[in-house]
Each structure stands twice: as C-alpha cells, then as structure tokens.
C-alpha cells in the first residue's frame, strides 16, 4: 500500500462519525463475513474442474463450426467442383478446346458438343 493510500484511509477514518449507521453496519457485516469465510472451503468441489473443461471443449467445438459459415463451405465446394470440371475437360479435349478463339481445324468444344447432340438425335430418329 503506498503513502497516499495510507493518508486517504486515515482521512476517511477521521471523517467517519462513530454514530454513522452505515459504518456501524459495515463493521458488523465484516464480522459476519469473517465468520463465513472461515467456514468456506476454498478447494474446488468434486468434478468441478471436469465440468468446466467439458463446457470449454463443447464451446470450442461450437466456435470451430461458427468460424466456418455454411455459405463458405458451399462456396468453396462450388469453386473446387468447377475447377475439377475444367481440369477433366482439358484432359479429355486438350487445353485449346476451352479457348475462345479456335484456329481452323482445332477441336471446338462447343461445336463438338452440338455435333454430338445432333448425332444422338438422328440416331434416335433412325431407331424409331
């Protein structure tokens, strides 16, 4: 405790009227507190620490789920799915198939796709 604290406490004590009801109540209550303090055990009750740690673990799980929002999960899935499609198509038709400008004679994925559909339609009609 520093000197200014000591001085202020002394000044407060001097200011206190002995007949002051508030300070009389404080004096009595302090004695009650002292009696109850001695009867309280300061050791954690059985399983208290285990209960706290179980709540802490549960809270950490909730926080982990909260940190990654569902929208984020769906968003990232969509990004990975489209990247996988692009990779598969480029393996199947060659990387140039995805380019917008096609040199004559190169495979154009869009035209190739349309041709495949047309072929399927005609073969279906022929079957009928």
């Amino acid at each position: 405790m520093n000197t200014s604290d000591n001085m202020s406490q002394q000044r407060q004590a001097k200011d206190r009227d002995p007949a002051d009801t508030y300070h009389r109540l404080v004096k009595l209550a302090r004695r009650a507190e002292a009696s109850s303090e001695s009867s309280h055990a300061d050791k954690a009750p059985p399983f208290f620490a285990a209960r706290v740690m179980a709540r802490v673990q549960a809270q950490r799980k909730v926080d982990r789920v909260k940190r990654v929002s569902p929208w984020e999960i769906v968003g990232w899935k969509a990004v990975w799915a489209s990247l996988a499609v692009v990779a598969l198509v480029s393996v199947w038709a060659g990387p140039d198939a995805l380019a917008f400008n096609h040199a004559p004679g190169e495979i154009d994925l869009f035209t190739t796709g349309l041709e495949a559909i047309e072929d399927a339609r005609f073969s279906g009609l022929e079957l009928l």
Partner: peptide
C-alpha cells in the same frame, strides 16, 4: 466478543447492507 459463529445482529447487518 468474536465467536466462531456469526451473531444474529451481524447477519442482520449483512442483510441490510
């Protein structure tokens, strides 16, 4: 005189406080 148990007036004082 201070005893181990809190006196009734001490407990009442704590309640008022």
């Amino acid at each position: 005189e201070r005893t181990h148990e809190a006196a009734p007036e001490e407990l009442a004082a704590r309640e008022i406080l």
